[in-house]
Design a protein around this nucleic acid. Structure first.
Lengths: 206, 206
DNA sequence: TATTATACTGTACATATATTCAGTACTATT
DNA sequence: AATAGTACTGAATATATGTACAGTATAATA
């Protein structure tokens, strides 16, 4: 699979959004309208490029004959198989194979936002937020974090799940939801804080 | 919602199968080809009937503008659609249409056990068990209950989610997981206790 | 330097498609 | 007996749509 360009990604996203919204794929004209193109051939050439690269298939002659090819090898965006990663005290929750305990088949639009993997929770530091040991948190890899979000944070090799609270441009507090645990105060000038992502959902099996 | 006729059901199934196969809805001609009709108007009239009865929506003027309206009742094909039922204080959590708030597409083997519906939780009586307001509990309709199971219990018209604890052949205690709530002691000789099912999993969107 | 890929505008046209109209026939309901 | 719904055939047509052709421009590659 070749690389996708940013414009081609825009077109691909546009198709997916259109299908989600209407239930059927867009025409060339629909894509032009969504993305501001003035010629249907602009959409056409992008579609042919996406087809050539294997991202979509186009039924020749048929109207709205575009379908998105699910290729889970490529991005985690189109995949229905989501990995479960164990929250180990030391080390970043990477998608490296040795950290993947299992996978779960799950619709892409299962939670309100897309997500990248499930994190298996250790400990009870977020107990009062209803996050218990062995719960699976749906994690979206993003740096778009607001105060009050439940984030997966890493300081050096220590990974934790906490509430995010930016007190000042320099100070971030990571707040547990359990009276037995203390706030973690991070001075961004002294320590490196990595936000691996945020929680967009939770799954529990019992 | 009116009743569907057998021919209309065939057309509806045909549309669903076509979408599953190709990724986009069929044309009138496609439906004719699949079902052996000789005139596109045969498909057209069935489509209009299905639209009138609320099974599909048709985008006027658009080609392939058919989309199936999600109605879990009509799910011979989509066995992965589970209803969400609101936990109302009064009344049994039935699958009657008026109680279904929404549906979720979910693999059948998503939790460790099969289940029948999602129950949307009201209140915080199971807070310490990690069950928060608006969480969705995956409920399996069963009477195979052990002590310690989280059950959906009904006494008269009152429905609650609690831990199940059979103290004696006559006495069942329904125990909340929140110090602000009291145990419900049920004397089976005096009151009727209906166990609607038990929790086999939990889903939270945030 | 020539070639290829990307990224568009603009026009044109064959055909794919929705949709209407005119019929026929059967069934159930009022 | 009249009306409405179902279940079709068959033909006609406006328009929705895919797709080719003719350009322009930029960037990267061989």
């Amino acid at each position: 699979m070749k690389e996708i360009t940013s414009q081609q990604q825009r077109v691909l996203d546009c198709i997916q959004i259109y299908i989600n919204k209407t239930g059927f794929p867009p025409t060339r004209a629909d894509i032009c309208k969504e993305l501001g193109f003035k010629s249907p051939n602009s959409a056409e050439t992008h579609l042919r490029a996406l087809e050539k690269k294997g991202f979509i298939s186009i039924e020749s002659g048929a109207s709205r004959g575009i379908s998105i090819i699910n290729n889970d090898r490529n991005s985690s965006i189109n995949s229905d198989e989501y990995p479960i990663i164990g929250l180990v005290a030391a080390g970043s929750p990477t998608l490296a194979e040795e950290n993947i305990m299992n996978t779960i088949n799950c619709p892409e639009s299962f939670f309100n936002s897309s997500f990248d993997y499930f994190l298996k929770v250790k400990g009870l530091s977020m107990k009062n937020a209803g996050i218990m040991e062995d719960d699976l948190i749906a994690v979206k890899k993003t740096s778009d974090i607001k105060n009050g979000d439940i984030v997966i944070a890493r300081i050096d090799d220590e990974v934790t799940v906490k509430f995010f609270n930016k007190k000042s441009p320099k100070i971030v507090e990571l707040e547990p939801a359990n009276e037995d645990f203390e706030n973690i105060v991070v001075n961004l000038e002294e320590e490196e804080l990595h936000i691996e992502g945020k929680s967009v959902g939770l799954l529990r099996k019992n």
